[in-house]
Amino acid sequence: MMIFETINFSLIINSLVIAVSILSIVFSFGVVWRTEKELDISYKFFLGAIIVFTLEEFLNFFSLAEKPVFVIVGLFLKLFFSVLFLAGIFTARDLIRKMDGEKQSFENQGDV
């Protein structure tokens, strides 16, 4: 029973991750098409991050991922995901700070 669970559980989770990532890409596109200005930019960063994440998950399915060149590619994809996600969060934070007046009051007080 344990062996059965191990064999199928890993495969099911891996498949679900890919399926959920693809849905996330579709819905992120939906948000990008429905928004403008800085909100649109932040979601474009999120979209880029989820695309890079999905590519990295696909790469892990290949046994060739053990080769050094593909290991390096995988590491860079992880890095891009982190950077894009951070950029999206940063942009969203920036627009919220502008909306709630926090950034304007900082600028008026001479802070950057």
Binding site: F29, W33, R34, T35, L39
Partner: peptide, 20 residues
């Protein structure tokens, strides 16, 4: 198909949402 459906429904939007 999923992407196309998402695009199709987005075309029904009256306005584009902004942070304002």
């Amino acid at each position: 198909i999923l992407l196309g459906n998402e695009y199709r429904t987005s075309r029904y939007a009256i306005i584009q949402v902004t942070e304002e």
